[in-house]
């Protein structure tokens, strides 16, 4: 299938700004907001979202990285995956944790992330923010904030490119 661009840099930027507004509106009283990005691009998005939330709400929001590799259910189906560093700068107990990822697909990564986050403590609330929801869920998992819904065929490949990791902001499908 040919490669098509679904979102340009401006679309990505606007989507992140809108998601940040949604997060603030969702939990206006959450004084203990904690953004945790799932590597690699979820971690980049979490940092951008945190900067936007800080701009909108006028306060700093702690942002960290949550590696979910050791909690995955598909480890045995491929060569051993490299693990990544988890860096959580604030106490998870009682916090409003927002999990951030680039693409929501089967939901299995998010399931692993829920296990990983509850191993760190007991959050008051866990929410899910994704830049792209491409459908095809295999588990009862639903995002709270979506940058863009992009219906896709299951066999297609949706890729999110971000300046920090890929040199430019773009979402493609092939």
């Amino acid at each position: 299938m040919p490669l098509r661009t679904l979102l340009q840099a401006d679309d990505v930027r606007r989507a992140i700004t809108r998601m940040a507004h949604e997060l603030v509106e969702h939990d206006p009283d959450a004084d203990r907001l904690l953004l945790l990005g799932i590597p690699t691009r979820g971690a980049v998005l979490a940092r951008r979202l945190a900067a936007e939330v800080a701009r909108i709400a006028g306060r700093e929001v702690p942002v960290g990285v949550l590696d979910v590799t050791l909690y995955r259910d598909d480890l045995g189906t491929q060569p051993t995956r490299a693990t990544g560093r988890t860096d959580v700068p604030a106490d998870v107990d009682g916090a409003t944790v927002v999990l951030v990822d680039d693409v929501l697909f089967s939901g299995r990564t998010v399931r692993a992330a829920l296990d990983a986050v509850t191993a760190l403590g007991r959050p008051a609330v866990v929410r899910l923010a994704v830049l792209v929801d491409r459908g095809h869920r295999e588990l009862p998992i639903r995002p709270d904030s979506v940058g863009r819904n992009l219906p896709s065929a299951k066999s297609e490949r949706v890729r999110v490119l971000l300046t920090e990791t890929d040199g430019r902001d773009e979402v493609t499908i092939e």
Binding site: L70, Y71, L75, A82, T83, R85, T86, T118, A119, L120
Partner: peptide, 23 residues
Amino acid sequence: VALLDVAEDMADTQRRTVKKLPT
């Protein structure tokens, strides 16, 4: 180096509330 890096991640998990991993 890759093995030692995984060991760093494993050591970090041993400072968590729940130290047992389902891996």
